[in-house]
């Protein structure tokens, strides 16, 4: 480092010289620096050599190579990876969820890979890095598709299902997400979209930055800012927007839940999205019980156990759903603990 300081290196100037962008003035300035002493010129020659040398590795990093590597990686080194790399913010519970069966594949036809597909099943969620370094987490039964020209042209993809996006900022290339019900355009931000084909409701929750929403049935576009959410009903074409109090929206990813005076019926709907398990009730009285609590990284079993103990309920499990019942026998009450 000290040695280079002696050369009094102006990297601005050297970058312009190497990329042929230097003006006449800069060239004169450069010549002047170069001729100051022999060590300057030998220093520059070494830098120039590095520049030339690395240029010969261009094909290592070309868009075609990057794209093909994603495909080959998914069929080779990543094929047996059950646990996907998760972001630091996620708790142990989601790691456990992600370690469930992971289905990860690209376009079935390897011979013409124009489109890449990434999907999850009934019992898998995954975290994935897109070619532009943006990150996406897919909830259960979700699919995204994107074109081979993803980076070279616009960054566009199709989504069916629910996903949380953390978009890498690229000013000249907006990131566009198309769904059945409408499209979203963003620059650099993080947000959650839920748009299942067989669900009449589309919802968007913006965690940071802002997102623009378009739909055939809406004039212009709707800007959704940090902390806001919108719901769009594709049947009656109604759009509603509100400030979101909690981030239950992305709880399927973070496993952080806040229930603020909600009925068990409402809580069951949230838990279904987060844990992909249906919860039923013996009767309407139970459905209407109100509950306030916060959970961080807990399993569904633990959450239901807390609810059951609080309201003296009994948990009954079947293969397809979990049912909450009133405790009939006085003696069995205490045994839940």
């Amino acid at each position: 480092m000290k040695k280079e300081d002696l050369h009094n290196v102006n990297w601005d100037l050297i970058s312009d010289i190497l990329t042929d962008k230097a003006s006449e003035n800069q060239k004169a300035e450069f010549e002047n620096w170069l001729n100051q002493n022999d060590s300057n010129s030998s220093f520059f020659n070494k830098i120039k050599e590095i520049w030339l040398k690395t240029g010969n590795l261009s094909h290592f990093y070309s868009a075609d190579t990057n794209y093909a590597w994603e495909i080959v990686k998914s069929k080779t080194v990543q094929k047996h990876t059950k646990v996907v790399k998760l972001k630091r913010t996620l708790s142990w519970a989601i790691s456990a969820a992600a370690s469930l069966l992971l289905i990860f594949y690209f376009s079935k036809n390897i011979r013409s890979p124009k489109e890449a597909t990434l999907s999850t099943t009934n019992n898998s969620i995954i975290a994935y890095k897109l070619p532009d370094n943006s990150e996406v987490d897919l909830n259960y039964q979700t699919e995204i598709k994107y074109n081979k020209k993803f980076i070279r042209k616009n960054r566009e993809l199709r989504l069916n299902g629910e996903a949380f996006f953390d978009i890498e900022k690229m000013k000249s290339k907006p990131f566009i997400i198309h769904t059945e019900q409408g499209s979203f355009k963003v620059l650099g931000t993080s947000f959650n979209i839920s748009s299942y084909k067989n669900d009449s409701l589309l919802s968007l929750f913006v965690k940071t930055g802002e997102v623009e929403f378009f739909s055939e049935n809406i004039k212009g576009s709707v800007i959704v800012k940090k902390g806001e959410q919108i719901h769009y009903n594709k049947i009656n074409k109604k759009l509603s927007k509100k400030k979101n109090k909690t981030e239950n929206f992305i709880a399927w990813k973070t496993k952080e839940l806040t229930f603020d005076d909600l009925t068990l019926e409402e809580i069951a709907a949230i838990l279904k999205r987060v844990y992909n398990t249906e919860i039923r009730f013996e009767n309407e009285n139970i459905q209407q019980i109100r509950f306030t609590a916060q959970f961080k990284g807990q399993s569904l079993d633990k959450i239901l156990k807390v609810i059951a103990i609080t309201f003296e309920l009994e948990i009954q499990k079947t293969d397809d759903y979990i049912k909450l019942l009133e405790v009939k026998n006085e003696q069995t009450k205490g045994q839940n603990n």
Binding site: W11, D12, S15, D16, T19, K21, W51, T54, G55, L57, S58, F60, Y61, S62, A63, K169, M170, K171, S172, K173, G188
Partner: peptide
């Protein structure tokens, strides 16, 4: 810059940073 042949200005715009930062 080197492999994709983008100009300093293009890189600065893509990443939302100053041209000077790109060069540095």
């Amino acid at each position: 810059s080197r492999m994709h042949g983008l100009k300093h200005k293009e890189i600065a715009e893509e990443l939302g940073i100053a041209i000077k930062t790109v060069k540095n």
